[in-house]
Every structure is written in C-alpha cells, then in structure tokens.
Design a protein around this nucleic acid. Sequence first.
DNA 1: CGAGACATGTAACCTGTTACATGATTCC
DNA 2: GGAATCATGTAACAGGTTACATGTCTCG
Lengths: 176, 176
Amino acid sequence: MGLRHALLGILSLREMSGYDVKNQFDRAIHFVWNATSSQIYRELRRMEEDGLITGTLLVQDTKPNKYIYNITEPGRVELDQWLGSPVSPRFKKDEFLLRLFFMGRADKTVARRILQARKEQIEDLLRGYEERARDFPSSLRENRTELLWWQGHLLDLMWDTLQVEYDWVRKLLKEC
Amino acid sequence: MGLRHALLGILSLREMSGYDVKNQFDRAIHFVWNATSSQIYRELRRMEEDGLITGTLLVQDTKPNKYIYNITEPGRVELDQWLGSPVSPRFKKDEFLLRLFFMGRADKTVARRILQARKEQIEDLLRGYEERARDFPSSLRENRTELLWWQGHLLDLMWDTLQVEYDWVRKLLKEC
DNA sequence: CGAGACATGTAACCTGTTACATGATTCC
DNA sequence: GGAATCATGTAACAGGTTACATGTCTCG
C-alpha cells in the first residue's frame, strides 16, 4: 500500500485538502512517488472511512470551499508502523530498459534515436533536481530537521543514480 | 502497454507456452520487467484475440498438454513499431525511498534496521547479477548477437546503479 | 508414497490511467 | 472577455496482486 502511506506521511506534516496533497506530490515527492488527482481523492475517502484521517469542510468566501483532512491517532500509529516494516522487494518495471532489452531487433538509426531521446530526458531530470536542490530547505518548511536530513541524502542518491545512467547512455551513443 | 510488448518480444525469440514465458521472465527479464502467471495467461488470450499471436494446442503424452503461442506478422510489426516509439517518462515509484522520505519521524534504531535490511537486499541482488553475468551468453541461446550486445550493456548499467545505491546505504549506516 | 516440477487457469480485489464535468475566482 | 488557478470529483477501463483450484508426471 504505497499511496496510502505516502498520503499519511504528507498529512502528518500538516492538515491539507486533496488538492494541496496533489501539489505536495508534484512539487516535493514526485521523484519517489506520485499519483493522479482522481486516485488521491478516491484514496482519501477510503482512508476517512477507515478512520486514519478525518475530513472537515472549510467554507471560503473568496475561493472555492475545500475539504480539509487531518491525520488521526490511528493514522499516526499506522504510519510509524509502516516506517519500521520490512520493504517488500518488488521487481522493477522500466519501459526504457525493456525496450533496450529487445533493441537488437531494430536498426541502428532507431536505437540511436531512442538513446538520444533518453539522454535529453535525463538532462531535463537533472535540471529538475538542481532546481529542487536549490530551493530545497524552503520548500517543505514544516519539516523537522531530521526529515530534511533524510530528504537531502535521498536527493543525493537520485542525482548520483541519474548521473550513472547519463554517462552510460552517452557511452552507448558513442559506441553504436 | 508494457506487458504486451514484453510478451511480443519474448515470443519473437521463439514459440512458447504461457508457462515458458513466465520462466523467461523469471530467469532473464526479471530485472527490467516481470508479471504473475495469471496476468500473463490473461494477456496472451487477449493478444490472440487481437491477432498479434496464434495459439495451438500441443498434445503431449509424457507431460501435460500445452498451448503454444506463435507471433504473427502483425505482431512483429507491432513490436518493431513499439521499439522505435518514444518512451513516455513515467514517474518513479520506489517504496524504499518513500519510506526514507518520511524516515525523520522514526527513531534511529528503526532507521538503521531499514537501512540494514536494504543493504542485505542489495547484496542479494548483486549476487543475482553476478550469477546472471556468468551464464549470460548461454541463457537465451536464441538471441542474435545484437540482442546479446544490448543485454550485456543493460546488465552493466543495472550493476553500476545498484553499486551506487549500495555505497550510499553503507555511507548512511556509518553516519546515522 | 510424497514432493516438486509441469501446466493452466478463475475470482475477487486493488491500483493506476484517461477523459470528462463543473463551477468559482483572479489577473491581464 | 478569456486564460489560469483553485477545487473536487465521476466513469470506464487497463494493469497488477493474491489466493485458490486442478490435474499430470517424474524422481527419490
């Protein structure tokens, strides 16, 4: 249950509407998890049913009303339990690598086009990380320093991993 | 449509039953894609309906009968078209990193336990890659050399990526 | 005789994607 | 007036997981 726990994690920082949650995903968490609005609204309703969160309608006259969710005590318990539970090692699914697995069928111009596209994609992603690293401490101000510590290291790992793939793609582009 | 194209790729190597396909996934492709048996059988039936593959019953007296699938010409066309099509950049979902994102909530013993477990998991995975690299050329003998070339480089990338994560985990274990 | 590989599936459910619908307010 | 942002959703479908069911043959 990845999404549910991601939502608990976000709502443990502060109360939020479904819309706010979606923004948090897009801005801060997107490089480890994300979800569409419809999925988020659906899951929040289920979590309220299950008593992990409570919702209250906030009437606003200047903006549209929102439905604000708060994490409950059972929600916090569930979150902390999940944090300490073993990570089940699911296999990977990577569309790009799957293509390369069978790329021997295609001719070189096709292969080069795919690699080139991936190279540019990685450049975009690296730029995104740079940006994120720049305004990093200000972005989720509610975070306690321990959260920031972990998130900073996480960003380092993502960066290094992408760099490895970037070098690899460039090497292949030269070789083929 | 990741699974469908993975299946086409596998069946382009040689004809196979659903059971054989599952074994190919588990043995050779699992580090870029995988699926459960029920998913595979379901998708193969749909692909036959769509004319991408044809199935014939092979009656065996020594073993249970099997239903053998062959890729069709439209199937090959679909496969080659997919190989050259742009890869849509889906966001990542990584349960381990998601846990770390909120790990600041937990105390150090919990964090260390999670990191330690991941370290051991990576050691397992690295051993798996070593094994795979060892019997690599013999494992999918039907492969043409171009396929082997790509798959070898793929393995290199997976290896390097895991190594980066491994070093990172060990560094964190020292620091926290 | 029992364990394990061979071989194929069904049912129920959960997760994720896409397209669409609605309506307010704010800023140019 | 029109686009962008705020805010919430529904419907339909595709993809993925888990548990279970069924029956064979082979090997020790």
